[in-house]
Write a protein that binds this DNA or RNA. Sequence first.
RNA 1: GCCGGAGUAGCUCAGUGGUAGAGCAAUUCACUCGUAAUGAAUAGGCCAGGGGUUCGACUCCCCUCUCCGGCUCCA
Length: 667
Amino acid sequence: EIRLVAPACELPCADKASQDKPVSLELRYPDGTVVAHPEGVTGLEVAATIGPRLAAAAVAVKINGKVIDLATPINEGGDFSVVTLADDDGLFILRHSSAHVLAQAVLDEFPGSTFAIGPPIQDGFYYDFGVDSPFTPEDVESLEARMRQIIAEDQPFERVVLSRDEAREVFAHHRFKMELIDTVDSAQGVDHDSVTVYRNHEFVDLCRGPHLPSTGRIPAVKLLRSSGAYWRGDEKRDQLQRIYGTAWPSPADLDAYLVRIEEAEKRDHRRLGSELDLFSFPNELGSGLAVWHPKGGLLRKIVEDRSRELHERFGFDFVYTPHLMKADLWRTSGHLEYYEENMYPRMEMDHGVEYQVKPMNCPGHILIYQSRARSYRELPIRLSELGGVYRYEKSGVVHGLMRARGFTQDDSHTFCTEEQLADELRHHLRFVLEWHTGFGFNEADIEAELSTQPEKSVGEQSRWEISEKLLAEALEAEGVTYRVAPGEGAFYGPKIDVHIKDAIGRRWQMGTVQLDFNNPERFDLVYAAAGNVSERPYMIHCAKAGSMERFIGVLVEHYGGAFPMWLAPVQVSVVPVADRHHEYGGSVVARLRDAGVRAELDISDETVGDKIRRALTQKHPAVLVVGDDDAANQTVGLRLYGEEHDTRGVALIEATNRLVEMAQRPG
RNA sequence: GCCGGAGUAGCUCAGUGGUAGAGCAAUUCACUCGUAAUGAAUAGGCCAGGGGUUCGACUCCCCUCUCCGGCUCCA
């Protein structure tokens, strides 16, 4: 028996007896009016008293912040509002119901398959299935067609409360659901031993709800792709097949979403990297390894110069450490025990001595600290380095500059006393924030996380707790909103992470501040405290950008390649109208370059229109066109990226001053 | 690493077992042009690499590499 058939069971309060009760509820509408309704009235009935159009648009109601089905009787008074597809709750329900319809289609079309979980997500939904063989793209197409049929049939969604034992009977052939029945919490208003299921036609799914009144209320749905996914996100457990889809209040909204996705893909740094000739990933070089072309090199130099400038201002000293270090060093640091799967293999040199390419810069900086005796008077010692590291990332995770196997961290290690710790953490956090805002990322772009002790970790429990508290205090002192990511810390200590989203909404970890009380112990770091007692310093690992590669990847996507002028590798294109203007054009370029502006002369054998098109396609911030009049009068035609019209006859001196000003970093 | 998809000219892509194609880019020539594509011609391919099936393979099968979308993992 593959198809699920729920045993006959009654909806709670299905009988209308409760309506006879004299008890009435006071419902406060969003506009503030309070209206009395009989206890047990349904959301749909209330919506109908407000207006037929609202009732028709309603997909659920919200009572005191809880969203419930239209058909569920209301047993409490309070704040009341009608949920439609125009609000986030409505979209959530739409996508959740769409996921059910997808599961229904899969169970219909693939006899013997079983289903796991299918939640709504940002812009859509997914559902995970246990099937004999993975879905093909054709399968996904036919499933979408089957979903349309189910939607056309307008099957009502019915909420049913079952005891956990009853549920076990219903889902006896579905092992993932069986596991869920044992672990899920009961839905609101349902006793602990019961769970809710939703039924439409013959399909039943374990679900808290709420749902649309019927499948016909799904206006626009599309399946996007399938992929593997692990049951409960654990790679040691079953691999399921996930199908992603999207659902919208109208076909027009769906189209707009698809266009939005397409536009976002045009901002992909890998695509822009090649279009703007910034960097590439030659197959011959190896996975996850980039080469930087001259224009990308220029962009990177600008970012690295900024990094050095800020490190100096925040009181860091520059150091350099080699890329290759003895394996013993990695044994001492704990990397061989906790991180070796991410490290390139050991190589034997010099009569059996093993070396390893560095995946992190910490040990090198620690050795600098240890190079002589340290006094409390010189703490904090802040060592920084643009340190190239190599990590063996799993083949499936490499992703352009965002996740490379070789990259350069703007790394630093600070050694300080316990008393200095709180101030130092704030100092580092301020640095990380200033770094990002300086490149045009604002609060809305940045998400901070406090990552706490992971499963595989070293060090005393109490130190972990104190460290996590110190980091939280730094975040609060700086007024940073953050969320806690349990178990996401480094093996040697908890950390603050800053995340930024890429063009299509994937989150990438950027800057990080990490507190480390383990390495000082492992390496037996000491300093002479006042009174000449030997004390153990604390360490703060900190990357402000994270890595040059990932940061520039995110930067490219943030600006879609159209950089603010101070970041643009080519700031000005000078376009001569005809060959006879090359000389004057050359003098304009020379003048701009003397003033520190990165300008290029386009001497290609093309029309003016074509040369302008090329400059704009390359997203150069400014184009200067020079012709007869300009050569005669020492003027230029000025056209800025993003502006549709040009200005003719701008005096060269004025244009230069203006461009020099525009090329300054804001702030 | 796992699941799926893909790899044809510098780029974007056609090409279902029988002589490798287009557009853009490049090169050359002509044109000397005032704000998003002047015209013509030329060149460019071990069809990712290796093995197999076949009279014959870009095409079918196997392996490897690389990329794309997820999962897991991370700066």
